[in-house]
Amino acid sequence: MGSFAALLRKDLRLELRSGQSTLALFALSLLILVVLVFALSPEPRDRAEASAGALWVAMVFAGMLGATRALLSENENGCIRALAMSPVDPAMLYGAKLAAAFIFMTVAEAAAVLLVVLFFNLDFGPSLLRLAPPLVLGTLGFSALATLLAAISGRTRAGDLLLPLLAVPMFVPALIAGVKSSAAALAGAPFSAMSQWLGVLVAFDVLFVTLGGLLFEHVIGED
């Protein structure tokens, strides 16, 4: 556990120092939301649905940037090789990178939620708290997926283009479940309306965290 903590502490320290990932994530979320407000009109007919959709669009596209950036620090001086050579289990390495990406995305999303409330004139109340389960589960799933795929795309030509091509189709189930449960949460529907969607999100998270842990050693290894 010592090495997991050391890896995570290192990433958080780097992030606190530069604020790069979180700030970039938030800035991109802001821009995406602005674009969507113009595209959808700020008073859409179904406000809960539109704002939930906007929130998730911002999350997916900002999240991809975040995942790429989170691996940038490892690639700069070849540090990823030092990690690959170290006695640390690749699954542990994956877990630490995933945890870091999850934290950065969560912080940026909390800010994005406030923006959505502001932009779409939503009620600022306890119902917002009900967004937490879908957002947390969705963010976990996305970090799990993007951490694995960014390790691949970061090592290919035109990786920035490749990451969305791979990540977006795979994220579809979590996206559907996330948007639906977020819209239900914002519309004040009972928890039972969200539960099946949360089930899909949990299944997605379990699947991708497991796969990432198992397969990470293959994407950091070299021939």
């Binding site: 010592g2 890896l7 320290r13 780097l14 001086n77 070849g78 090789r81």
Partner: peptide, 23 residues
């Protein structure tokens, strides 16, 4: 030939980090 050091960490933090990884 690459340094395998994190540029935004101090020298001490880099050393500490690798020492922890290797136990």
């Amino acid at each position: 030939h690459q340094s395998w050091l994190y540029p935004n960490l101090t020298a001490r933090e880099n050393i500490e980090f690798y020492a922890t990884l290797y136990g």
